[in-house]
C-alpha cells in the first residue's frame, strides 16, 4: 500500500488508546491483526488486494473515518475502532447489505459459515431497522458444479479479485452503475460460458451464499459450522480451536 518501497521500519501508533508497534507498509487492519485485535470486515480477505468497498472495517484515523483495510499505518496516528459511534456505523452497513439483497438464512446452505450472518450476530442485530428493498435477482445454475444466487451477493468483489489474481481467469466482474451494479461473468452471459472450475479459489472466496458448490448441501451439519458457537473474529482475538468436537451441543 505504501508508496515508499524501503526496508520496513517500525511504526508506533495507538489503537483505541493501546500502543501498537507495526511495520511500515502494513495496513491498519494488518497491524491490528498482528497484535490480536480484530477489526470486522467483509470485502477484505487475506492475500487479496485491499478493495475498500464494504466499509465494515471503518475506523477513525486522527478523527477522520477511513477503511482499515486500505489505510497504511503511519507513525503517531491515533486509530479508533471500537467506539459506540463506529460500532453503530458498522451495524448500519451490515443492515444495509441485508436489506439490499434477499437473505433468508434459514434456507441458505451457507448459514453458519456465512460472514454476513456471523457479523450480524457479533453486532447483536436481531432485526434490521431499515426497510427491505426486495430486489428481483436471478439464480445462475448453468454451470455443472457451481451456482450463483445473485439474491445473496453483497458486491464484495472477493470472487472478482480471486479469479483474476489467484486463479488467473477473470471469470467475474461488475457491470452497471449505482443500485444497478451487479456481478457479471466473463466471457459470455452464463456461468457455464466461463472457464471457472469447481476447484478454483474464487469459489471459496465468497463470504456469503452467493457462490456455492453444487451437491454439497449439509456436508457439515448445522451446529458444527464455523460460527455456530464462536463469533466471527475470535480466531484473530485469541487463537482458539475453531473445530467443534463431536458430541458438542448444537
Amino acid at each position: 500500500m505504501s508508496e515508499v518501497i524501503l526496508p520496513t521500519s517500525e511504526v508506533i501508533f495507538t489503537l483505541d488508546g493501546v500502543t501498537v508497534t507495526a511495520q511500515s507498509g502494513q495496513t491498519v487492519m494488518e497491524a491490528a491483526e498482528a497484535v490480536g485485535i480484530y477489526i470486522p470486515r467483509l470485502c477484505h480477505k487475506e492475500g487479496l488486494e485491499p478493495y475498500g468497498s464494504c466499509r465494515v472495517c471503518t475506523v477513525t484515523v486522527n478523527g477522520r473515518p477511513a477503511s482499515a483495510c486500505t489505510t497504511p499505518v503511519a507513525d503517531g496516528i491515533a486509530v479508533e475502532s471500537e467506539s459506540d459511534q463506529i460500532r453503530a456505523w458498522r451495524r448500519t452497513v451490515i443492515e444495509m447489505l441485508f436489506v439490499e439483497g434477499n437473505h433468508f438464512c434459514m434456507f441458505c446452505e451457507k448459514s453458519g459459515n456465512c460472514e454476513l450472518q456471523a457479523l450480524g450476530y457479533r453486532m447483536g442485530i436481531v432485526a434490521p431497522r431499515l426497510p427491505y428493498l426486495w430486489p428481483k435477482r436471478p439464480v445462475d445454475a448453468s454451470h455443472p458444479d457451481v451456482l450463483i444466487d445473485h439474491n445473496r451477493c453483497i458486491l464484495c468483489a472477493r470472487c472478482v479479485r480471486t479469479s483474476r489474481d489467484v486463479d488467473g481467469k477473470q471469470a467475474f466482474a461488475f457491470v452497471g452503475r449505482g443500485s444497478r451494479r451487479h456481478l457479471a461473468v466473463n466471457p459470455g452471459s452464463r456461468l457455464c460460458d466461463t472457464k471457472l472450475d469447481v476447484t478454483d479459489a474464487a469459489v471459496d472466496a465468497c463470504p456469503v451464499g452467493a457462490i456455492l458448490r453444487k451437491r454439497r448441501g449439509f456436508e457439515t451439519p448445522i451446529g458444527r459450522r464455523l460460527y455456530d458457537h464462536v463469533p466471527i473474529g475470535t480466531g484473530v482475538e485469541q487463537p482458539v480451536e475453531l473445530t467443534i468436537r463431536e458430541g458438542s451441543p448444537s
Binding site: S53, L133, I154, R181
Partner: peptide
C-alpha cells in the same frame, strides 16, 4: 445522487436509496 452513485461502496449505493425512500 441515487442515479449518479457508482455503486462501489455500500453506504452510498444503498444508503441514498434508503434516504430517498
Amino acid at each position: 445522487f441515487v442515479e449518479e452513485s457508482c455503486g462501489y461502496c455500500t453506504p452510498c449505493r444503498v444508503g441514498n436509496v434508503l434516504l430517498r425512500e
